[in-house]
Each structure stands twice: as structure tokens, then as C-alpha cells.
Write a protein that binds this DNA or RNA. Structure first.
Lengths: 361, 361
DNA sequence: AGAAGATGGGAGAGCGTTTTCCAAGCCGAT
DNA sequence: ATCGGCTTGGAAAACGCTCTCCCATCTTCT
């Protein structure tokens, strides 16, 4: 049956000109060598360099050859990609973490993919599965997320799905999951940070310290609240649920929350806030009620976002190493650093002007 | 010569088990159909669905088949990627623009690549060429950059290089280049924004209005300075170089710059700043010198970054539609919107408390 | 009942690389 | 002069997919 071993070239024209971008075959043809030789010459993987190598290089330059990274990736030798998946791209912590990741991915010759889930489970799942199809080297799931069985089951599903194609899943900015100790997860010391903040307030003489929490049940606020609780406990104080407020994570909501809170009646002299944004809102609300910060009420935030040092008063807050966290996550994603158990980066209390001794009664 | 048309399968074992992730061939084999049928069935490109389609779907589910996005991309049917290339990833404008781009790329089923050049020409070039190899659909070069022939030549080089592989170059957040009207470039109205700021100050009664510029010659500060000049001219005033300062784009530098500036001697009552960061630094410096804002000197910024509304006094500034700019750039990148000449999005003056009538002399 | 049309599915080329295997060619050594 | 080792380069398989022919059915019309 095989009467014509050489196929009749159905599509391409007989002339030397081809459509589209030139290909390694074109380079080889022009240089008068085989594609194998051309590939070897261009990738520098050949034993020695000979005249044909130079012909290949010249041919490549002449026709403007651009190697196809997609094809290289398919052969397992291209750049791999790492995905940065977060709920939202705004917010003070995002950019710093992303830049940390970017630093190590590009240093390693890899690509950084950016995805947003808009806090939708469906989009999160779609994103992960899409990334799996793209054969990403790793997926960084960053930011706070819900706690609970349903969530852990979802992460387990993602981890399995990704492992199936040799991609690893890394949880970034959230604590390790009890049921999934093998999933790499790195976080910073929320608890210690807030504990330090509370200790600072206690040392200043505060005894009645309120807390403003987020109105969502996710890992970050939960941990920070634990820091509050432990901080109080360390000073021999108990959590009084009546002076724990909840709000959304933006300035306006926090301000509105403070507006309708009978704090004076409770004798509160200090307020620990789950984030800087909430702290700023709280400060605005206090001010609106004619209360001075820190004269009447001290305020502490968390994140040390840009500009909080320039507020009046400058905000006392907890600084977390977002950039380092991102860089470390990137290194683990690329396999440059092994993941051995949970990683928790230290945080640091930055004392500024929004905290002071309570007014003498 | 062709005695053995069927090659002797050198590598893979004879058993049904294969290493690595399952393949479309594996699915087809299990379903008892050809790869062509399997491909059609899974991609839903077949006219109707038949029993074999269901067998294929079942087989795919059974062995956990994950289509290879890289291979699909190589065939020209996969997700394409759009690259967001900026100097730095920090800064107030970055996240908003990136999120705008992300919104439209993922809506269109595409991938967003994130790259940083660290303001190094070499890295910029490497990035562009790497993206070209990756066959990105488009490259968004975002942020301010140097002006001048050398720069335009570089952009021309990039545009040509990218066009060679069918990728388009989009300049985002900088004005169109005179020598390259065909490369898509979108910007927002720096000039109009600063003009409005100056007009606002003039209307308040200011006549001696200083300016703090950046110490770099790039498009953004140049345009904003032009807005300053035109704003003064519209009020019949001239630029007095003695009250034009230069600083780096961070709070500390701006503060230091203000510290050694004889502004009182010059009778300055208002200061227009090239960015919010500089404005905050200026405010800090003024305050340090015992001057009140806006009592002694009014201050205007540009960018309306997060928290400037919560400073004391709240900063009067110019707001630019960064998110929309990013989204529009994304749409042009994806070819959803045609680029017809320069695009300039409007800006808006946001009057807050850092500007007031000059003190009566 | 036979032919025309519709339709599902298979074989195989093609995408642009890398890489393995193997045939030459060339050198010095026996 | 011939043989083993070494370099050099080519043919072709492989990666995993899509897509264009085709052929074999099945339906349906005359």
C-alpha cells in the first residue's frame, strides 16, 4: 500500500516562503543542515562548535527565528509557570507578596501567572482546574479563607487534582490545615503580633481593651482574635464579648460600626483592630464621636500598610513580612526550598502615636 | 526501503499502564475509539452526542484525564496569555490597573502574566523577548518611562519584535509616541488633572503656587508639569523655576526636599505635587517646619491613593481611573476593542481639606 | 429495492520542539 | 592497511493535541 513514502505535502506551497513565524525547520533548511543540528546548535547543547553551527546562527538571525516557548514547554524544557491566586488584587498586602513571588520566579527563569477568584468558590475551582490544564508548576493560594471541614475538603481536592499533573499547591498567608499536613502552607505570626499589641496596651496601663473583628469566619481574623484572647489572658484578663465588635474590612464599615457602639459606657480605653483599614475606620468613628485618639482611646491596627505612619496620630500597628513571605512561597513553589512542616514568619509591633497611657480617671 | 511501516514502539512498555499523566490516546484506548473521536467528544465539537461520546467521557473521568493546555495552545486553540509588564509592582496605581486587566483577560478565558523590569533596560528587553518566545498575545508596558529618541527606538524595536510573532504591544499609562502612532497607547489626562488642581487653587485666591516635580525625566511627571504650567498660564501666571522643586517619588525624599526649601521667603501659599506620595512628604516637611496645611500652605496631590482621604487634613488630589485604564488596555490587548488613535481617559479633581484660601496677609 | 444524502468515526498529517539512535567520517594506533 | 574510538550530523520518534480528509454506515427518497 505504501506506494508514496513521501507524503504529497498537502497544504504548504512549494516555494521557499512559508506563512507565519519561521520555524526551526526553516532555519535548518536555510543553513543546509537538519533540524536536529539546528536545535543543537541554537541551544548550545552540542559538543563543540563547528562551521555549521555558525551557519545555523546566521540563518536564524537572517530569517528572524524565534524559538517557540510553548513547544519547548511541551517537551518539558521550557519555562514553567507559577500561579498567584488571590481573592482580590487590591488591598495593602497583595502587591508586596506578589512582588516577592515575582522576584524569585523570574530569577529562576519562570513565569508568574496572576489570577483572581473574587472570593467565589466556583471561580476558585475553575481557576485551579484551568491552571492544572496549563500545567503550572505550582499554585499559590494566597490570603485568608474560610475555616472548616468544607474548606479543607476543597483544598484536599485541589491538592489531589494538582498533584495528578505534578503541580504543587501552596497555601500562603494562612495556617496549615490540620487534616492536610503535607500541603505546604506558610503564614506569619498573627497571634504573636496581636499578643504583642495587647501586651503593649497592658503595659501602658489599659485594662479595658476592646476588639474589632471581621464579620467573616476566616483564618486570618480568627488567628488575630486568638492573639487578642491570649494577650488578654497573659495579663490575667478575660474576653468580654460585649466589647468585641464585627465589621467588614473597609474604612466606611468600620466607621459605621463604631458610630453605634456604646464604648464609653463600657469604659473602653483601647481598641485592637483586626486590620489597619478597620483601625482607620475606627479612628474616624471615634473622632466623629468627639473622642481623641489616643487621648481617650488608643487604637492598634495590623498590616502596617502604606501611609498609616502618616496619619494623625500615626497608627501603632503590627508589621508582617509580606514580601519575604511571597519570596519564600515562590522558592517552595519552585522546589528551591523544601517544605518541612508549617512555616510561620515573625511579625513585629510598630509602636507609633495612636497608643498612649489611658487618661487618668 | 520501507519494509517496516509500523515502527517498533521503542520506549513505552507493552502493558496498558503508562507513566505520567494520562493522555488523550489513553482515553481513546480505554473507550475503544480513536483519538480523533475522543478529541471531538471531549471538546464538544461533535455534531451530536452518541454512545461513544459517553464512553469517552466515562473513560476520561475514570483515568483522570486532564487536557494539556500547552498542547492546545500550540495548536492555536488554547488560552492565550497577556503580559503585564511594569517597572515595579508596588505603588498605589499598580494593583488597580492590574486588576482591571485581570478582569477582562480572565473573562475572555485568557491568562495574565506578571513581569517586573525593576526599571532596568536590560531586564525590560529580556522580558519582552522572553514573552515573545512564549507567544504572548499581547504585552502591556505599563507606567511612566523615559522620553526621548533612545526610548522611542527601543519601543519601536519591541513593537517590531512582537509583531513578528503576531503579538501586539500596548503602552499603558503613558502618552502615544510621536514616531509610533500605530502602537496602541492609552493614558489618562495628567494635564487636565493638574490644570484643574491649579485652577482650584487660583479660584481660592492663591497666586504664588509652587510645584514639586520628580527628579526623573519621564512621561508622567513631564505631563503633570505641563498641566501645572498650563494651569498657571490660564490664570495669567508664569512658571517661576525658583519655586519648582524636584524629589524622588517617596515620602521621605519629599520631606527632606521641603526641609531645605526657602518657601516662606518666596511667599508660597500653595504647593502642587506630582504624586500623592510626594504630597504627603511635603505635608510632613511643612508640618515639621511649623507650617499648617492648609492654613499656611495648601497642598494638592495626584493619584488619590488609599488613605489619603483619611490624613489630617484629607488630601485634595486628582483621581485617575486606573482600573478602567487597565480594563480598556486588556480589551485592546485581546482585540475586543479596536485602537483608533490615542486614548486619554478623564481625570477628576477631588477637593478635600488640604486646600483652602490663603491666609490674609 | 436501489440510489442519494446524511452522519459518525478512523487514519494520519501537522504544530515546533527535543532527543535518541545510528550511520558516516576521521583520527591515530597496531 | 585495517581497526577501534571519537566526533558530527541526520532520520525519526516523541510530546499531546486538533483537524482535514475519507470511508463505512444508516436513513430516506423514488
Amino acid at each position: 500500500m505504501s506506494d508514496a513514502p513521501s507524503a504529497p505535502r498537502p497544504a504548504s506551497a512549494p516555494g521557499p516562503e512559508r506563512l507565519g513565524t519561521p520555524n526551526l525547520g526553516d532555519v535548518a533548511r536555510l543553513a543546509g543542515v537538519s533540524v536536529a543540528t539546528a536545535s543543537r546548535a541554537l541551544s548550545g547543547r552540542a559538543p563543540t562548535r563547528t562551521s555549521s553551527h555558525e551557519r545555523v546562527a546566521a540563518a536564524a538571525a537572517e530569517i528572524g527565528y524565534v524559538p517557540n516557548g510553548l513547544a519547548r514547554s511541551m517537551m518539558g524544557v521550557g519555562r514553567r509557570s507559577v500561579a498567584f491566586v488571590s481573592g482580590e488584587m487590591v488591598g495593602p498586602t497583595f502587591a508586596a507578596m506578589a512582588s516577592g513571588v515575582e522576584e524569585v520566579t523570574t530569577a529562576g527563569g519562570h513565569l508568574l501567572l496572576l489570577c483572581t477568584t473574587h472570593s467565589s468558590v466556583q471561580r476558585e475551582r475553575e481557576t485551579i482546574y484551568s491552571l492544572r490544564e496549563q500545567r503550572a508548576a505550582a499554585v499559590l493560594l494566597v490570603g485568608s479563607t474560610p475555616v472548616g471541614e468544607e474548606f479543607e475538603a476543597r483544598i484536599a481536592e485541589y491538592a489531589d487534582a494538582l498533584e495528578m499533573v505534578g503541580a504543587r499547591l501552596i497555601l500562603c498567608g494562612r495556617p496549615p490545615l490540620a487534616s492536610l499536613p503535607h500541603v505546604a502552607s506558610l503564614d506569619y505570626d498573627h497571634v504573636g503580633g496581636v499578643r504583642a499589641a495587647v501586651a503593649h496596651l497592658v503595659e501602658l496601663g489599659h485594662r479595658r481593651i476592646g476588639y474589632i473583628d471581621l464579620d467573616e469566619e476566616s483564618s486570618t481574623p480568627l488567628q488575630r482574635f486568638r492573639g487578642y484572647r491570649e494577650g488578654l489572658a497573659a495579663a490575667g484578663l478575660d474576653v468580654d464579648e460585649r466589647i468585641v465588635l464585627r465589621t467588614a474590612n473597609d474604612i466606611e464599615s468600620a466607621e459605621a460600626t463604631i458610630a453605634e457602639f456604646p464604648l464609653i459606657d463600657e469604659g473602653i480605653t483601647a481598641l485592637v483592630c483586626v486590620t489597619d483599614l478597620v483601625a482607620v475606620g475606627a479612628r474616624n468613628g471615634l473622632r466623629r464621636r468627639g473622642l481623641d485618639v489616643p487621648g481617650d482611646v488608643s487604637v492598634v491596627g495590623f498590616d502596617d500598610m502604606l501611609l498609616v505612619a502618616d496619619l494623625t496620630p500615626p497608627l501603632t500597628t503590627v508589621r508582617a513580612p509580606f514580601h519575604e513571605l511571597g519570596a519564600l512561597a515562590g522558592r517552595i513553589a519552585l522546589g528551591q526550598t523544601a517544605f518541612e512542616g508549617a512555616i510561620e514568619l515573625p511579625t513585629e509591633l510598630v509602636v507609633r502615636g495612636s497608643t498612649a497611657q489611658p487618661a487618668s480617671r
